[in-house]
């Protein structure tokens, strides 16, 4: 099939048919903030950070789940989008308890980096300060729900790549939270193979290897795409 030509922020860009807008945008060297997207996993369009304006469409569309089409004219960084992205990051920081100063991921955290990227220097909303649990029943990993942004990358990594679907989401609204098995302690999970892929996929300090302290959890989410590629190529 013929390549598609589209205009992204004024630049003419060509893209492969069936490619997502996000891929085309990145190929054009433009950075759009993302959080729930992770190369190698399916997309869910949940975080809304990658929303872009497409001329002729009434609603903003998530770049990660929109397919390129011929003649599309896309704006990725209008003042309106900048303001929405900042507000979304503010809402996330206000939702749970992010204390970067004592977090294992500090310095390697996607949320922290996003704050800088969207210019969020303070949160105008009231902090909800929920009382969230920490589960360190697993011998190798822990989850601190105070830092979870509900991107479901762990859920998808465990389901789509490891193939065991230990994680899922329970509860509604701000009470939604990730669970292991049927909401049992992670350490009691009979499905978890301790492969660590959820930990690799997690963009924040929510899932961490046990024994690391402040700032010691490296960011290694790109390894998920590597694993997927390796399987495809039978490396």
């Amino acid at each position: 099939m013929a390549a598609k030509t589209l205009t992204i922020d004024g630049h003419l860009v060509s893209a492969r048919p069936g490619e997502t807008l996000l891929a085309a945008i990145r190929e054009a060297g433009i950075t759009v903030p993302t959080l729930c997207h992770l190369d190698g996993l399916s997309d869910v369009g949940a975080c809304r950070l990658c929303l872009v304006e497409i001329e002729g469409q009434r609603r903003l569309q998530p770049a990660c789940m929109t397919m390129v089409s011929e003649g599309m004219v896309v704006h990725t960084n209008t003042p309106r989008l900048q303001s929405y992205r900042r507000q979304i990051i503010e809402l996330l920081f206000a939702e749970r308890n992010h204390v970067c100063a004592v977090c294992v991921a500090s310095g390697h955290c996607e949320l922290q980096r996003l704050a800088g990227m969207v210019g969020m220097d303070h949160v105008r909303y009231e902090y909800l300060s929920p009382n969230c649990p920490v589960d360190i029943s697993h011998p190798r990993f822990g989850i601190d729900h105070n830092r979870c942004v509900l991107c479901t990358r762990c859920v998808r990594a465990c389901d789509e790549i490891e193939g065991v679907h230990t994680w899922d989401v329970a509860g509604r609204g701000v009470n939604a939270h990730v669970i292991t098995d049927l909401n049992q302690p992670w350490g009691a999970s009979t499905t978890c193979t301790s492969c660590g892929k959820c930990q690799l996929a997690c963009p924040t300090g929510a899932i961490f290897p046990r024994g690391v302290t402040v700032g010691e959890r490296p960011h290694a989410s790109e390894r998920i795409a590597l694993i997927v590629e390796a399987r495809k190529q039978r490396w």
Binding site: V44, C47, R48, I88, L91, L150, R172, G173, A176
Partner: peptide, 13 residues
């Protein structure tokens, strides 16, 4: 707020 499914941030929070 009680019925939001919690998937996307603008609605959930």
């Amino acid at each position: 707020k009680d019925e939001s499914c919690g998937k996307c941030i603008p609605c959930r929070v």
